[in-house]
Amino acid sequence: MSEKELYLGYATDKVVTPFFRKFLEALEQEKLMKSVCPNCGTEFLPPRQHCQKCLSETELKEFTEREAKLYSYVIVDFPPESLASRAPYVVAIGEFPSGLRLTAHITNLTSMPEVGMPLKLAFDRVDEKKITYKWLV
């Protein structure tokens, strides 16, 4: 039985481990998963399979914050080869009220981004094999 291919974002790293696959399958359901260490309680966004502090196996839990602020951004005019068709595009680090951060594209800007502006987390199907989280202003 072969499961359908599923990747994150726009350029694809085709190495998908079982842990990462769970993250991607949740993302298909418009759920963004963080990971929580059952041993020391540390939270990670994006998730990591092993706790950075105690190396325990973490657990995926739904991350429910949606509103963030723009911490920093770049408008990529000259892209890596793999994203040539999307340029120019805006990459933004958003910071949630909890302090956790996430890096994704802002896809609906009509004017120049500004540090501190509000961002809203959203989800998108890029093509039949790729899904992503993204920022909206």
Partner: peptide, 19 residues
């Protein structure tokens, strides 16, 4: 896993610092 899929080139990392 987390940066490359979003096309963050080498100058893009420093542009994030610059912004």
């Amino acid at each position: 896993r987390w940066e490359y899929p979003f096309g963050i080139s080498f100058p893009a990392f420093y542009a994030l610092m610059a912004s």
